[in-house]
Design a protein around this nucleic acid. Structure first.
Lengths: 242, 242
DNA sequence: CGCGAAATTGACAAGGGTCAATACCGGTGG
DNA sequence: CCACCGGTATTGACCCTTGTCAATTTCGCG
């Protein structure tokens, strides 16, 4: 495939981009080396601790970003403090509301997070020049829409038990760092606190905790050290997702 | 095909497109007259009764469509029959999962619906030729994503009362046929049955009914003839949305 | 007018929320 | 290495919202 060939033969790819996931699976995969060089000149890497606010709700959009490492949670809040996590983003997802004047969600670092930040103007200019980039971002947007709709089913129609199982299943697929393809089980660290999980599932901390306990007692999962989870058989977990 | 006059002055918009909302606010608004003519040759109008299946879940995608009239509900189901409405589409929304192999949702006519159906190949070809079209569709996709996330808050964090109020508020904004801009209130017919509303809100029919009754008793709405709703003061309704 | 479907209402049960007490983890300093 | 501390998670008791089941009522339509 030509993309690959170009990559191998061209030594002009910015150093920082070479090991970046966005370069391969993310939006930068559609850029020509020259474009990548031009873009890299205007980006900068940032590092954030858990809880850091990356984008504020109802704030003006001045930049976009790619998630290079870690997990970002997108949340929306009601006036009285109730919160709902409306999305989770993993590397190499794109972060930010394209073509909007202000962000509709808050983006918070759930774990340690590294971003590659792009000024708004730089990205929009590049999009205008290269339809393939918009196409790639369209694909990600469509995928996010699919995910959001899947999650609406979970929020609206599943029991607490099924919600927690669905969450663990989701994380198992995204966050097991070195899972072989055919593996039956998974091992991972939860990137979210119980409070975050509750906000993601539309439940309370207590209910999440109780359902985790039930799953543990049923032998579906093993919890060691509070955040570390082992799923011996993913099929079994999937069956509990409703 | 016989020679047709193709001079500059023959920029006639196809007759069927002239009164179509998609021509103005929908995706066709970005098309040049020639493109519109070419596209119109490959589309056809279809009419559907309430309950008709427009797109099946997990079916191959062969065509897309524009909603010309009526309300379409997008649903997802669990094996055991539980259902969740994950989106509502009004004229002149675009219908269908772009660039996907199969639909992830079922599209059902909620009311009488007229569609303008475009074969998959025709649309994808046009998109490839005209980036402005993809851009327009990107905008709609982003809007749908925003709406989906708003609704996730409703599903996950609002009470039954707030959910029903939110639903009525949503419909009031979309379905009042002739509402002046500054109007305080709204009058409309519900395009969805109680069962549909319940599936949209993640509630049961009974709970929806009870909450409607409470809103009626509180004087926030008036219900005449079962489907016909009057909201004297939209502000009041909005305040109940949480 | 009368029928079937849809909607309302009521009585009751249960799933999940609330509040409070306890246990646990991870880090700090003795 | 252990004791202590603050934040996080678990567990328990109780209650409230919403779901369930069943009986009417209303609507739409022939």
């Amino acid at each position: 495939m030509s993309e690959k060939r170009r990559d191998v033969h061209n030594s002009d790819v910015p150093i920082l981009c070479r090991s970046c996931e966005a370069r391969h699976k993310g939006m930068c995969g559609v850029l020509e080396p020259e474009e990548l060089v031009a873009l890299a000149r205007r980006t900068h890497k940032t590092r954030h601790e858990p809880g850091a606010e990356l984008i504020g709700e109802s704030t003006e959009i001045r930049s976009y970003a790619n998630v290079m490492r870690g997990v970002v949670k997108l949340t929306k809040g009601l006036e009285d403090g109730r919160q709902q996590v409306v999305g989770l983003q993993f590397a190499p997802d794109f972060l930010g509301r394209l073509f909007g004047d202000e962000s509709q969600t808050t983006a918070l670092a759930a774990s340690d997070v590294d971003l590659c930040v792009v000024p708004r103007g730089a990205l929009e200019q590049l999009i205008a020049e290269n339809p393939a980039l918009e196409h790639r971002l369209m694909q990600q947007t469509l995928r996010e829409l699919d995910e959001a709709r899947d999650w609406m089913v979970t929020l609206g129609r599943k029991t607490a038990q099924e919600k927690v199982a669905s969450f663990l299943h989701l994380i198992a697929l995204h966050a097991d760092p070195h899972r072989p393809d055919g593996a039956l089980g998974a091992v991972f660290d939860l990137p979210l606190s119980r409070a975050d999980i509750a906000d993601f599932l539309g439940l309370t901390i207590e209910t999440v905790s109780r359902q985790m306990t039930k799953l543990r007692q049923a032998g579906v999962i093993t919890i060691t050290a509070n955040r570390h989870v082992e799923v011996p058989n993913l099929r079994r977990l999937a069956d509990m997702c409703g």
